[in-house]
Structure formats: C-alpha cells, structure tokens
Simulated assay, not measured.
Amino acid sequence: MYDPLPFLKKILALPGLSGYEDPVRLAIAEEWGPFVDELKISRLGSLYGIRRGNSVEPRPRILLAAHMDAIGLMTTMVDHGLIHFTEVGGVDPRILPGQQVIVHGRRDLPGVIGQPAARLLPDSIGKKAVPMEYLLIDVGLSAEETAGLVRPGDLISFAQPPIELTDNSLAGHTLDNRASVAALSVCLSELSSMRHAWDVWAVATVQEEETLAGAFTSPVDIEPDIAVAIDVTFAKGPGASDYRTVPFGKGICLGWGPNTHPAIFEAFKKVAEHLDIPFQTEVSPSQSGTDAMGLQVAAGGLPSLYISIPIRYMHTPVEMVCMKDIQRAGHLLAQAAASLQPDFVQQIRWED
C-alpha cells in the first residue's frame, strides 16, 4: 500500500507560495509520474496528471483538484538590516512572533520573526496582538549584507520541519493544502492498478489562496464532465467546537452547499457507505472557500463537489492532520472515480 507520509513531509519542506508554486510542482510531478499516463503544465502553472480510462473514446473526464500553493510572506522593505513584510494569503499576525522563516532573496536566508519591546511600540497597541507592520525579520547579517541580498518582493516561507505526533497525526505548516495533494497521490497510486472507464485528471492547482486562478482556468483546458475539489476544513479543537467544526481524525467530509451538485454528492456518498469509509457531511450555506467555487462556474459550469480533510490550527505553522484521513480521502477518490459508468453524466439532473 502506498504510504503518503514521506512524500507529504517532503513537500511540506518546500516553498511554493501562491503565485510562485514552481518548487513544489516539480516534486509533485516526480511523485505522480509513475502513476499517470501523461503530465502537463498549464499556462498558469497548474500541474495535470492524466490517467486514461478504458472505455470507448471520446471518454468522459473527471477533474480532481487540490491546490498546491501555500500562504506565506513577502518582503516590503529592508531597513537597517531588518526586513519588513506583508502577507501572501491569509496570515494571522498573532502567530508570527518567534517563528522561523526562510527569506528567498538572492540566496535562501534563514531568519526569525522578531517583535519589538512593548515600550518601543505605540501606546495604542497596549496588550493587544502586535500588528504585522511592526514585526521584523532578522537574518543575522549586517545592514549592508542584508540590503544586498534581500529586495522588496522577495518571498518568505515558514521553515519549521513537520513533527510526527502520536496516534497517526502530523503537525506542520502548509498542510493546507499539501495534505490534499498527498491524498491525490494516494488516489493515483490506487488507480494505477485498477480499471476505470473515465479519464481521470488529477490537478495540483495554483493560486487558490489568492485568486482561484487554477480552479477557474483548468476546466477550460481540460473540459471535464464533473469536478471535485479536495481541500482541508476546520477540525474541532481548543476554542473551535461549535457547529462550524468537525471531529478530528474521525473521517473526511463531503461538502453540502451551493458549490455541490446533489447527484455528485450522492454518488460519492454511496461509494463511501459501501466501503465503510468514515465520513461526515459538512454543511456550507454559502461559498465553500475551496477550489470548488471556481470549478463550478468555469466555462459553462460544472457539476461539482468538494471533499475536505479536517485539520486543526488552520493557517498557522502548526496545522495538524490525521494521516488516516488522508488515506481515506485518497481511497474514496479512487473508488468513486473507478465506479463511474460511461453514461453517468447523461443520467444526472439537478433534482437528483
């Protein structure tokens, strides 16, 4: 059985901020290569891994999308050897002081995020969290050396290595959404030893954290019949235990809301129930906050679904995932894709 943990730890250690995904895309392509018939790169940088079905051409196509981009930081100014920065994607400044980072300047520079002493900050801040504009990155070089190596626009990624915890859990930055990329790898590995009627297009999309660019454009390239987005969602944990969160490690989530087509939901639900794959229904009364928002409305519109892997502490350097849920998501994707009959699309209606 394919073990996604080594691959996941590898891609968690790689940069690949939203709009700058090249480093992680190379690693994903290397991992997917043995499992697919063809690899392609879109004009915006999304990676396509294609497994061709065994039914008569023209075959229907299913698009399985997991965004590979990450949140992070970007240099805005270098002042007296200290680096000012802004966010790429949604970053909570409360979690930044004391974090280890890599500044991707003329060469990669390890650094730490420092916070000035309270007496040096405006009185209006008081005991509140220090805004990002007052935080600084120190790479330990002289002012002249730093100014020569770092410029505005240089990217900054989190640097903490992932930590294997007890009970099959992993903590680290960028599990949103590299956990789902690992689930897609599980899916492709499983499909490589199965017969399936449909062409399966696994897509590692770009820029979900900022523009949904990969989700909006990939369906135009691929022209799929249905699409599924794989992402993470909020697991129950400290301070997060109401109806908007789901149990941690107890199964994946099938999304139900405006980005979900009822017939696709029912098809995946039946497969999960048949195979005893633990799952929960995640209700989203508005937009899902995933690539499904773009996939659903691309071109003429697509019957879509989103599947989520619960994680704790989202958008922090210590996101936490249960590895069993990554396996479950990949297994469901593979089995559901393989179960699709050539005439499935002709049989679905919105009322289904």
Rank of each mutant, 00 (worst) to 15 (best):
V228G: 02
Q346V: 00
P93D: 03
I163C: 11
D92A: 08
A329L: 00
R51N: 00
T316A: 09
A235V: 05
P162S: 13
A227W: 04
E145S: 11
E351F: 01
R119T: 02
V206N: 10
A147H: 13
M293W: 04
L332P: 09
L191V: 06
G239R: 02
D3V: 00
T86I: 01
P161F: 06
Y313Q: 03
W32Q: 08
A263I: 08
I307K: 00
G105W: 07
F216E: 01
A66R: 04
F248I: 00
A334W: 04
G90A: 08
Q346M: 04
G249C: 10
G251I: 02
F7H: 07
I102N: 07
T166L: 13
L149R: 08
D167A: 15
S339P: 09
A118D: 11
P23F: 08
E208P: 06
S157M: 10
G289P: 02
I113W: 11
Q346D: 14
D199W: 06
C187K: 00
V186K: 02
L340I: 12
V220K: 04
I11N: 02
D276L: 09
E210N: 08
D79P: 03
S308L: 11
L165D: 12
A240F: 15
R25D: 02
Q207A: 14
R61T: 15
L170N: 13
D92L: 10
D3H: 00
L170H: 12
A292P: 11
T146M: 08
V130G: 06
L340Y: 04
Q207Y: 03
Q115M: 15
I50D: 09
S46E: 06
A229D: 05
T211M: 10
M1P: 14
K236T: 15
H67M: 10
E21P: 06
A129V: 15
W32H: 07
L109K: 06
D176F: 04
E144Q: 14
L26H: 07
Y134G: 13
A182S: 03
P219E: 07
I62D: 03
Q335L: 02
L8E: 05
E209S: 07
K269E: 15
D231N: 01
I230L: 15
R59K: 14
D199A: 10
A202M: 09
P15K: 05
I156K: 09
Y48T: 03
R119W: 05
D108K: 11
V112E: 00
C253S: 07
W350E: 11
R244D: 12
F7A: 01
F234C: 09
R244H: 15
Y243K: 13
P317N: 13
A29V: 02
